[in-house]
């Protein structure tokens, strides 16, 4: 298998097969990030398609000293954020009432129901974060990008990225912990 950097060089020279290989290698990752930001399968697919189109057009401008994956994430996240701004669709799911979810402090069948609801609750809790915090958190937590890489993707300094991640975790904890109760009791 050819290393990614070699494929990038070939694609820059106009080799469409090399670019296709880059698409095959990275579209899944990009789709995952786009889906987590947009929370909509079709929009995530459109976002990935648009991101690759932009990358193909701007491949000449890619500086091979930086990581290709950082560039990919940077383009995809920007396209996703543009889509979010256009649709403001995320606002529709921010009216979830967390007080309606039973507390886990009691040892009852409610706890089992709560556990099955955790995924849904988590998604709602994440969607309640504002876009800045949410994107930084998604990139660190789900996409496992380092803080340094996130600062390059979002064109921010590292301390701002850290601060956004801290605030995101803090808010998620505040939202989720009262519902989940003491995490140790869930085992």
């Amino acid at each position: 298998m050819q290393p990614e950097i070699e494929l990038v060089t070939l694609a820059k020279a106009g080799d469409m097969q090399a670019f296709q290989r880059l698409v095959e290698l990275n579209s899944g990752k990009m789709y995952g990030a786009a889906y987590r930001i947009l929370k909509n399968k079709e929009q995530a697919e459109d976002c990935v398609q648009e991101a690759f189109l932009k990358m193909h057009l701007k491949l000449d401008t890619f500086n091979q000293q930086s990581k290709f994956s950082t560039w990919l994430y940077s383009v995809t996240v920007n396209v996703a954020l543009d889509l979010l701004r256009k649709n403001a669709k995320h606002a529709q799911c921010s009216d979830y009432d967390f007080d309606q979810i039973p507390s886990a402090s009691t040892n009852s069948p409610e706890k089992a129901a709560l556990l099955s609801n955790i995924g849904r609750v988590t998604e709602r809790a994440i969607s309640q974060l504002n876009d800045d915090l949410r994107v930084a958190f998604i990139l660190r937590h789900y996409e496992e990008r380092s803080i340094e890489e996130i600062s390059q993707i979002l064109e921010l300094n590292a301390s701002t990225v850290k601060s956004r991640i801290f605030r995101a975790v803090g808010r998620l904890r505040k939202t989720l912990q009262p519902k989940v109760g003491d995490y140790e009791t869930l085992d």
């Binding site: 995924g119 975790v169 140790e184 869930l186």
Partner: peptide, 17 residues
């Protein structure tokens, strides 16, 4: 507690493209 929240509670699935 933090590990539990970030590790278990924050798992979320992405549908197949």
């Amino acid at each position: 507690a933090l590990c539990k929240m970030l590790g278990d509670a924050l798992e979320s699935d992405v549908p197949e493209p």
